[in-house]
Simulated assay, not measured.
Amino acid sequence: MKIYRLGRVKNLRSITTFHAMARLGYTGLVITEPEDTYISIGYFDRLEDIIDYEKCRKLNIPVIRREVGGGAVLLSEGQVFYQLILPKRLVPFKVEDAYKKFSKAVIETYKKLGIEVFYRPINDLVLKSGKKISGQGAADIGNFFVFVGNVLLRFDTKLMAELFKVQEEKFRDKIYKSLEENISWVERETGRSFSYKEVESILVEEFSKVVDFEGEGEIGEDVFELADKLMKDMTSPEVLFEDTGRKHAFIKLREGVYIRNAVRKAKGGLLKCEVYLVDGKIDRVKIYGDFTLVPKDALGDFESSLKGLGLEEVDKKVREFLEKVDMPGVEAKDLIYLLTGGES
């Protein structure tokens, strides 16, 4: 196993190279940074639920489906990637144990950059405030285990908010504010700028304490040829829009924090809502739209009654609410879908 300092690369090679290396039997640590800006969606993501693909095309921002789980993320210059490719025999059997083991190197890297971070199961590194400062992923590719993530020197929350799929354009500003509240990065926390080389050096030093490497290695042209072929496949509509069997009712901001903007056309009018989930419980809800409710003041009480509930408890609460009010043309299934994305 060797250390590969890939440097800054374009043509999506910052993400396709480790996929190619795993297929060709390379093992070790890759450190790299993208020159391009692109959206990476997780292996199980349903693109049309979470990303505005047409807006990405208009802005010339590629979208790629990686073979690693996790959510959709904006990747760009100012993010230093670490990509570990290991024989499975060197990896803990449980994925969470693998995250804990290999996250130590990243936690120490942030410490040397002047930031105290903590591992939050299953795949985030967060500040003491709870803000996410690094997302990680793991998967089997070929015969190997890969563990990947990034050190966020900078992050464009405004652009990320612009690229999420929303039901109402005005909701983008709320996504932006939520991203600002839930994500941070090195320059924001320290007020300092670090070069790619500085971060690369620290990552190599810290990962070398966790994994035994046999010096530095060079990546062959066979890897780049395969990486470029994979890029064409991983960005194709067939792969991007394939049916993964997964449905996204909420947008993930960080581990444990999700946001939903939904619209439902009921017989009694147009229903709209915003729902914020924190650690699996409803944190706040706003229901609005073109509908009739008597008494109208009951809506605020209903919204308040949902706070602290899990999504599985919404069905019962909705039915209790509709028994006490007159909401013509609105059925329980309408409100349940609006609030949870599920059917009654």
Rank of each mutant, 00 (worst) to 15 (best):
E274R: 14
K296T: 06
K281Y: 08
D315R: 15
G245E: 04
E216K: 07
V314F: 06
V263Y: 00
R254V: 05
P237M: 01
G215N: 09
D315Q: 15
S305C: 06
I219Y: 01
I259P: 01
G220M: 03
I251C: 05
F302S: 14
I251F: 06
E303P: 09
V275H: 05
R284C: 13
S304P: 01
M231E: 08
R254P: 00
G269A: 04
G308M: 04
E312N: 10
H248D: 05
I251V: 07
S236K: 01
K247V: 09
G215H: 11
A266G: 11
G289L: 01
L309M: 14
G245H: 02
I282R: 11
D290E: 14
E216G: 06
P295V: 05
E274K: 10
I282G: 07
K252I: 06
E313P: 07
D243Y: 07
E313F: 07
I251E: 08
G300S: 13
L277P: 12
S305F: 13
L293Q: 03
V285F: 14
V223C: 02
L306Q: 11
E238G: 01
R319L: 12
D233M: 04
D279R: 11
R264D: 04
V263I: 11
G217W: 09
P237Q: 00
K267L: 10
M234K: 08
G308T: 07
L253C: 04
G217K: 07
T235H: 01
G269Y: 05
H248T: 02
G280W: 12
M234E: 05
G300E: 12
I287H: 07
I219H: 00
G215M: 09
D283W: 15
S305V: 09
G310Y: 12
L253M: 03
L240H: 00
T292V: 12
E274V: 15
L311W: 11
E214K: 14
K272E: 13
K316F: 15
K265A: 07
E303D: 08
V223A: 03
